[in-house]
Design a protein around this nucleic acid. Structure first.
Lengths: 138, 138
DNA sequence: GGAAACAATATCAAATTTCGATGTAACTCA
DNA sequence: TGAGTTACATCGAAATTTGATATTGTTTCC
């Protein structure tokens, strides 16, 4: 378990660091990613996953709206709340980063043996299960 | 490849977010982690992996030294350079976060079937290879 | 139906972090 | 030796984050 944890830690650091065309900081990228995954959600929901306090998130989202990456509209079900979602441009940024990762990972995997590739393929669905379990018992 | 990339992205977000006892920001945790892995290294070396400009890193390291987490000593081989390493306390912080992850991952893996566990185990060494390859061709 | 309690977000000033520009000292090498 | 380069430090300004608090809408419960 220790070995697996360690290698994930190391792999993660490699995987996260991507040259981004525009220079977004970590908080911004995380918000974009979460909105890309979680569909429209309220500020409070977003707050749960982001490592920011509410005022910081409010101001970050305000800037993203200014920049045309996030759309903010009132929640029809609750007059106090705002529904946040990505604009097309916001989705493009997340998509382009994803594409870069696919490319990078493809390049790495090209250098593996067939057996290694098979092992990795076998792990994909297990990783999916793990993230589901993690989401549930969080 | 797209599926694998996606699941790694999702798993990563889960894996990164850890309640830290003391409240360190992302940059700080990354520096501590890198120093824990990379042994004593110079500021410039550290700079390569961290997503900070040099003045920001200098001031971050200065604070970590103040707080007793990082040791700074002159590089005997180069009068301009400083060798940075973790103090015992610094190592303890990284170690404790690692321990938390092991614990969390153990808990998740407990919920898998035997087959799934086997698939994951098979992927461990492949992931190790991948990080090595990535380190080389970076 | 209305007041009290609560929840979601906004605002504001202060603290922290990061950056660009520039300085200083040490190293390289011709 | 001296011109060019490298490693790190310093400094003021810009950007980010926080805690405290305000505002507005919702829920509860009598």
């Amino acid at each position: 378990m220790d070995r697996l944890t360690t290698v994930i830690e190391d792999f993660t650091t490699i995987f996260i660091r991507l040259p981004s065309v525009r220079r977004f900081n970590f908080s911004t990228l995380s918000v974009l990613h979460t909105l890309a995954r979680g569909g429209p959600m309220r500020l409070t929901d977003l707050l749960r996953t982001e490592q920011l306090k509410q005022p910081a998130l409010t101001s970050l989202v305000a800037k993203l709206e200014q920049d045309g990456l996030v759309r903010r509209r009132p929640d029809p079900a609750d007059g106090r709340a705002m529904l946040l979602s990505l604009t097309r441009e916001g989705r493009q940024i997340v998509g382009s980063r994803h594409a870069h990762r696919v490319e990078r990972l493809t390049h790495l995997i090209d250098q593996l043996t067939d057996d290694e590739r098979a092992a990795l393929a076998g792990a994909t669905s297990v990783l999916t299960r793990l993230t589901e379990i993690a989401a549930d018992d969080a």
